[in-house]
Design a protein around this nucleic acid. Structure first.
Lengths: 347, 347
DNA sequence: CTGTTAGCGCTTTCAC
DNA sequence: GTGAAAGCGCTAACAG
């Protein structure tokens, strides 16, 4: 089947219309300074008039560069309360569009080997210009693979290996958790427990550090801590343990909203009131946090800034600024709701 | 800057390696039956050996078809509890990948004019093969635009205009709501109220119909109904109204989890127990539904099937089956949790 | 069944 | 400052 006429306007048509060569139109579009002002204006008018848009396939073929940025989708974990990745993808795509890129989604079954193969295939098939990684971790195979191929990329999540060469954007979980800890301390709580993730998780360790710093700053004890899986049930059980303690917790700072919701359930089971009896804080500002009663105090990640910064970094990399990788650490915002306030829960 | 060597394997290299012409390699890959078995095998071995992957930009340029399917991202509404779109995008992308397509994301500010312009631009620039629409509504401008351009598309959400020509996949909100209604009726409830959306919403109307059918089937009254915005607060207020009634509701069937969570809050404020005192059901099976205490009975949309069916439809359209648009209506699954059960809430 | 030719739309030389 | 030529990798059409 031969290609069907497509009605798309090409360089040549613009050229004919403006009475110049195709090459000059190309220059007028991509290197305006090379073209005499008068001609340039005439050409740009023609572009406008005819509604010309450059064909990216042709460009990609010629330039080996497609203005495509790849991102791998991950399954939405239904057990998790967070909408984070959905918001992230929107923010990233908005920023990409604004900078003249398009996002192309990559799919791979779980496992970094599959993922790397998917990246490789995508690179061979399309000339994606760059990749965005999310949820990077220590010894991340994807990082070394992309680096070995010489493909530009930026990651949402810092490079935990101390890899200075990688551009990343991250949210400071330590500062956030410290802010939450200090907030509940300011409400007068002295027995502040922490429910977080196991030490394997770099993100979890950071958040735990924040709690430790917050406690130490006020010379509070740090004996109440748990490292559990990120599930509601684990949060619930950990909360019960900390409330059964001889000197029980009066505040629980959690590494996630999911864990905090487990704490709320435990409080419910014991007939304790969140806020009034035990202060609770989460992390991520999931939709659920605003919807439960009382509302859950939590930390909001500035996800739109993350998206914009990542695209910015990639833009720099593609412009050839390889020598100066960006490392951006953003502060999350403490959203105070009823679950950490002594007063009668209002929302 | 001249294109840099890319190390990608091309048809010509495979051809040389196998001692045939480029054309024959192309045939071996795309139309195996045209090539003699022996040659074919030799060529495919070479393809394997060299790790050849066809360059999609070149193909797109030549064929005016890119194996790209476009989807517009929408902002995650933080006020909404549902993760639906996140899951949908994952499912769609997985299905696309399996069928050999890639998803490219489209961005547009709110407003169908912007959206249509974004589609137009994307078409001019990238020869996307097809579009997937979501959240279609009556008199959807996007549908008429795509149709007028002759671009294949399929939508998540039926064609409300009775447009037989459009391929769509949808989830039967009516059947779902009816199932929820019958479920609470089976628990012995006779005063079953419905909190739904205004009549402008086709989806909302469908869900309300389901409730009506459920009630009529058991000869229950249908006087308790509310049409409100999809917010927690609206659900809360509507619930109070129905519980203040002279013959108050003992069960509330809601058009969304968000509304149902508002109902739960109202019950909390009145000291009533969800399930034991008043049965509550939502719709969408948002993560929150599983996380609140007691769990919220709700309807789960078979989102992975939706994704697969949409890609299937698009595949058919691209294969030229224009005469037989698919209309797939899927049944949601009732997930029963504590909020609709009389017993002591266990989860 | 296989090879040759041509061209998709664009952009980097390199002349003029 | 502008144009002509060439080619990115692929495949339809046509010969052989």
């Amino acid at each position: 089947m031969a290609p069907v006429p497509h009605g798309h306007v090409t360089l040549v048509q613009v050229a004919r219309w403006a009475g110049v060569s195709a090459q000059t139109v190309s220059n007028a579009v991509n290197n305006p300074e090379r073209v005499a002002p008068a001609t340039r204006e005439r050409i740009l008018a023609a572009v406008e008039e005819l509604g010309y848009e450059p064909n990216l396939s042709a460009r990609a073929l010629r330039n080996r560069s497609s203005s495509l940025i790849a991102f791998k989708t991950r399954p939405a974990r239904t057990d998790k309360a967070s909408l984070l990745m959905d918001e992230f993808l929107y923010a990233l795509n908005a920023a990409a569009a604004e900078a003249g890129y398009h996002l192309i989604l990559c799919h791979a079954e779980d496992g970094s080997a599959n993922e790397i193969k998917a990246y490789r295939d995508l690179l061979k098939k399309t000339s994606v210009d760059a990749f965005v990684l999310a949820e990077t971790h220590r010894n991340d195979d994807r990082v070394s693979a992309l680096r070995s191929w010489g493909v530009p990329f930026a990651s949402f999540g810092r490079s935990w290996d101390g890899d200075e060469a990688t551009s990343w954007v991250d949210v400071d979980g330590r500062a956030g958790t410290r802010a939450a800890t200090e907030h509940v301390a300011a409400q007068g709580h002295c027995r502040i427990g922490h429910i977080g993730w196991p030490a394997e998780s770099e993100i979890g360790s950071e958040r735990r550090e924040g709690w430790l710093e917050g406690c130490r700053g006020r010379e509070l004890e740090t004996d109440l801590q748990a490292a559990v899986a990120d599930t509601l049930e684990a949060g619930r059980q950990a909360a019960h343990r900390m409330l059964d303690s001889s000197r029980p917790a009066t505040a629980l700072v959690c590494a996630s909203d999911t864990l905090a919701l487990g704490v709320l359930r435990a409080l419910h089971e014991r007939g304790l009131r969140p806020g009034a009896d035990v202060a609770v804080t989460g992390f991520d500002d999931s939709p659920t946090a605003a919807l439960v009663s009382p509302g859950l105090t939590t930390l909001h990640q500035p996800i739109d800034v993350v998206g914009r910064q990542l695209i910015q970094s990639i833009d720099n990399l593609l412009a050839g600024d390889l020598r100066d990788p960006q490392h951006v650490l953003l502060e999350p915002e403490l959203i105070v709701r009823g679950s950490s306030l002594p007063g009668p829960p209002r929302q």
